[in-house]
Amino acid sequence: MRFSSGSKSRELLVELTPMIDVVFLLIIFFMVTSEFARDVRAEVELPKLPGEQLEENEEAGVVVNIDEHGNIILNVSEEPVTLEQLRKQLQVFFITDTSTEQRVLLRADRRASAGRLNEVVRVLHEIGVPAARMGTEIPGGLQ
């Protein structure tokens, strides 16, 4: 008895192209989303403290970064802002977006002078922010 080998090979052929397409799309998606996450979080050395260790972290809201030299960074891709610019940008943000309940995360470099942090805190207080969260780095903690 003879079998037609041609039709069998056609049926059993596994097409990998769509899977490769999807995998590449996934890679691109993760790379892009991680870039977005980095855009508001500047490379600063946060104080090595355990923090509040809450099970659920609140939504970050507005992230204000202060680097080692005291530069205030709102977006990594943009230039550092002055105190006056920070005040204006925060006022605009809190007027246009009332859903965030004035949540502010201060990410200050541990080597920076507290004088700069104090100036930012004063600005926040003046525009009516009642409380702020200070970013810390969990000692020895890696995600």
Partner: peptide, 12 residues
């Protein structure tokens, strides 16, 4: 790096 936070009220 894994981050956490410390919440504090603000006053001048």
């Amino acid at each position: 790096r894994q981050e956490d936070q410390l919440t504090s009220s603000l006053q001048t």
